[in-house]
């Protein structure tokens, strides 16, 4: 009785979805979650359903499989081509999962990328005290810090192509020192998106969400102006200044007034190097996705 009530309550909660956005689908997905009663989770770990929007290009297939496997089982995948409303399918999948059905198995082998057993006197896997790649995992090494002279450990990671805070398809290889980007390389450009993803409203909503104003971003996507005390002023003056196009703040103000952003595409590696992560993400979202795609194509 109690167990049945528990499952019934769980099933009436909004589906927890992680979205992998393919070409031409960005604005449709953003609109879907602004209207629908389902939650777009920020990471695969928090989700139960994988929504694959559009045809994912071959180059991102492995990343898609990896995300699928990062969703804790039981999990289900829903495909959406943008034509009809996927909510019915999402709700049905959610109901099945909450009723305790088993869901999909892993797509990739669940082995560590390198075995946790290596050579060396104590099986430590690496050589010496610092650096190297013990157990096939690169050790952090201290590097010059471009910010305040502290020599922090630097580590390299790849972000994308489905990172929710970046344009879909963009893959960056970053060397980070703490939250500071020491060097950046574009390995893949964002997927092409039609004009609707570059509309002022869509661009402003993305920035608002990053500033912690999710419900207001949804309101904007549904067509009404947001009410925030300081949305524009939250962006530091001069951040992402680009000649005639002004800085990120000017662009957000323009978007909120319905004006498209102007100005040339930025040089992405130069834009990101020396930036703190939050600033870097705000910067990449302070240009329309199409401008970032041109910039990424040029930098690749």
């Amino acid at each position: 009785m109690a167990v049945r009530l528990f499952h019934r309550m769980a099933a009436r909660s909004a589906p927890a979805v992680f979205v992998c956005i393919g070409p031409r689908m960005q604005a449709l997905v953003e609109g879907l979650f602004a209207r629908a009663q389902s939650r777009r989770m920020e990471s695969p770990a928090g989700a139960a359903i994988l929504l694959v929007a559009g045809d994912i290009p071959r180059r991102a297939a492995v990343a898609l499989d990896r995300i699928h496997d990062q969703i804790p089982p039981p999990r289900e995948t829903v495909h959406w081509d943008g034509c009809d409303d996927p909510m019915t399918e999402l709700l049905a999948a959610w109901a099945r999962l909450m009723a305790g059905e088993s869901g999909e198995p892993d797509r990739l082998p669940d082995d560590p990328p390198n075995p946790w057993k290596g050579h060396g006197d104590h099986g430590q896997g690496g050589e010496g005290m610092m650096g190297g790649v013990p157990y096939g995992r690169p050790m952090a090494m201290t590097g010059e810090d471009p910010r305040d002279g502290l020599k922090l450990d630097a580590y390299t990671m790849r972000v994308g192509p489905f990172a929710p805070m970046l344009p879909p398809g963009l893959v960056l290889e970053l060397t980070l020192q703490g939250d500071l980007i020491a060097s950046a390389r574009v390995t893949e450009a964002p997927f092409p998106q039609p004009e609707d993803a570059n509309a002022p409203r869509a661009c402003a909503a993305r920035l608002l969400r990053l500033l912690g104003l999710g419900p207001q971003a949804d309101r904007l996507l549904r067509g009404t102006a947001p009410r925030s005390l300081n949305a524009v002023r939250a962006l530091p003056v001069g951040l992402g200044a680009a000649g005639t196009g002004g800085d990120a703040r000017t662009r957000l103000r323009g978007w909120l007034e319905g004006k498209p952003a102007e100005g040339p595409p930025p040089d992405i590696p130069r834009l990101l190097e020396g930036r703190e992560w939050h600033e870097a993400v705000v910067l990449l979202n302070s240009w329309p996705p199409d401008t970032i795609r041109q910039a990424a194509e040029a930098a690749r």
Partner: peptide, 20 residues
């Protein structure tokens, strides 16, 4: 909100991002 620097959207849910 303005002081959620631990679990923000720019770091994909931050300290809670890997939790379920």
């Amino acid at each position: 909100g303005p002081f959620d620097f631990a679990d923000g959207a720019d770091i994909a849910g931050g300290t809670s991002g890997q939790e379920s």
